[in-house]
């Protein structure tokens, strides 16, 4: 279980997170929705300290972090127990697809090169790219790069995977293959997923829990049926009316 308590974050005068409280049960899929600038990315990045929140608590099972008093050691630990899938993929450009997956296994998990390679191949196959192991990032399509990104995250066997708009940078025809992989992971792997996305269809179909954010606060949350089917808040309704009409996606 991962819990946020009263997370606050400002960039200068701009208060981006105004006290976020939420809990995500182990193994569940939580989708975070919200208009641009509502603080979704910032919240996600606060979890693995790519962005340091100003105050609040982040609790991952037995790891209890008070953001204001966080130590280097705690940051390192939570980064080892989480992984992230980026909007712009961020594959290591100097490494092949296979090496991208092996990197964390060798350097962070300290397993042998041969073992890491074996493991990496399995994960590459899991995302349907078994034949692309020796390709560098620039030789792969966006959809393929993102699937490698997912495999890289997954291979580390993290407690939580954070997805920040994993399909937003993709050509429309490539969105499906990535969502497909994510759906598969949600079903097969017992790993907590926190997904920021505008894919309402994915949320409806895969999410256990949906959070709607606006203006740095959680406006509404609940099951997909509650939030997407029968939103109570006016802002949620407006947002959904806009998005559902043109980004509806069906697997």
């Amino acid at each position: 279980m991962i819990t946020f308590k009263n997370i606050h974050k400002s960039f200068g005068d701009n208060e981006v997170l105004k006290g976020i409280n939420a809990s995500v049960p182990t193994g569940s899929v939580t989708v975070i929705l919200g208009p641009s600038g509502s603080g979704k990315t910032t919240l996600l990045r606060s979890i693995n300290f790519l962005e340091k929140a100003d105050r609040g608590e982040i609790i991952l099972d037995d790891l209890h972090i008070d953001v204001e008093k966080v130590t280097k050691q705690e940051i390192h630990e939570i980064r080892q127990r989480t992984a992230m899938v980026f909007q712009s993929y961020n594959l290591f450009k100097n490494k092949t697809a296979l090496e991208n997956i092996m990197e964390g296994l060798i350097v962070v998990k300290k397993i042998s090169k041969a073992e890491a390679k074996e493991k990496a191949i399995i994960f590459l196959e899991k995302v349907g790219l078994g034949s692309k192991g020796d390709f560098y990032a620039h030789q792969l399509s966006g959809g393929q790069q993102q699937r490698v990104g997912i495999a890289r995250a997954l291979a580390l066997n993290p407690d939580v995977i954070l997805f920040d708009e994993p399909t937003s940078a993709l050509d429309p025809e490539l969105v499906g293959e990535v969502l497909e992989v994510m759906k598969k992971i949600a079903q097969e792997v017992n790993c907590t997923m926190i997904v920021v996305t505008h894919e309402i269809g994915f949320a409806r179909e895969v999410a256990d829990h949906v959070i709607f954010m606006d203006g740095g606060v959680i406006v509404e949350e609940g099951t997909p049926e509650q939030v997407l089917g029968a939103p109570k808040n006016e802002r949620t309704k407006q947002f959904l009316a806009r998005y559902v009409s043109f980004t509806e996606y069906n697997i």
């Binding site: 989480t82 992984a83 992230m84 594959l91 995250a153």
Partner: peptide, 15 residues
Amino acid sequence: VDKGQMEAAYSIGMT
């Protein structure tokens, strides 16, 4: 070098 590269390294637990 794109700053996403270091973020990716951090995200998988590298120092």
